[in-house]
Design a protein around this nucleic acid. Sequence first.
DNA 1: GCAAGATAGTTTGACATCAAAATATTTGAC
DNA 2: GTCAAATATTTTGATGTCAAACTATCTTGC
Lengths: 162, 162
Amino acid sequence: MTVSAKTAEDSPSENESDVLIPTAFRDVVGYHLRVAQEVSFQAFSAMLEKSDLKPGWYSILTILSEYDELTPSELSRVCGRDRSTLTSTLKGLAIRGLIERRQNPNDQRSYSVSLTDEGRKMHKRLHAVAREHDRRLDEIVGKDKEALIAILARIVGALGKG
Amino acid sequence: MTVSAKTAEDSPSENESDVLIPTAFRDVVGYHLRVAQEVSFQAFSAMLEKSDLKPGWYSILTILSEYDELTPSELSRVCGRDRSTLTSTLKGLAIRGLIERRQNPNDQRSYSVSLTDEGRKMHKRLHAVAREHDRRLDEIVGKDKEALIAILARIVGALGKG
DNA sequence: GCAAGATAGTTTGACATCAAAATATTTGAC
DNA sequence: GTCAAATATTTTGATGTCAAACTATCTTGC
């Protein structure tokens, strides 16, 4: 595929994986953030290919393994996504017997979810893959890891829930 | 909302915007990457609320303003997303008269897209908002910007198209 | 008590994303 | 020339995201 740039001096750069970067985006933090997050997610997903594990389960199972019991709303807050986003994932996890729902006796609207033994096993398997992925990222990031996380956390703190 | 942690010493941390970070994710680059990208995107989207501008248009219009004419496949490569992802966005842009499609006389399967005058105007409007967003990010990131972009580019180079 | 408003969860609709399958067309081998 | 393989694009289906609308239930004020 040939893509011609307007002129030589403002022609887009090309990194080692042959991805063209439009000049208008070269110094834009948001762009690099998005692309990095996407390749990271794709790489994690690729590691789960051919398994019965789904990337979307990981954060939920991990959170539930830390907090024994949570309502969907609490879970939504901890994992940082909208309530409505969780509905279908929780349904899938329940159908597969990875989580249990327990009615709140004091509030008919509400229920809590917790891991089943199957869920704990599934979490362990997912966690092993996730750790492998983390190691890859750690290796790429190297000594800058602490600084990187600090900057990213600063972005979340400054823009989040704003 | 009350979320009880298992114990005090491994209880999740809380940053200034009241987002809980599960301990299992605290030192995980991928997690912070995802959350930072999400808040960045949400902040950009929020800036476009109440306007007729859509965040998804921005990268395409920007790329087209750099490369005068591209086929969907070329565009897909430059913006780093799958071909199929672009179809509906391009359709929307065409319907709104922001881009023009021109048949390739040598290949009936293929066509090229380019900005219309309306498209150029729309791109200018979006770019103004995007620059505002960039400034916000730059301010948050501060002197670490170059280093941050270098790390993110390293992640993309190492994991991308792998 | 009862009506109004708050809250918990789900549903729906708009967007994005990918991968795989389907179409249409071109290229290449013979 | 014809048929097979490659290519360009679209369609379809699975995920995942948000916001807004909807249902059911609970709480509050009176």
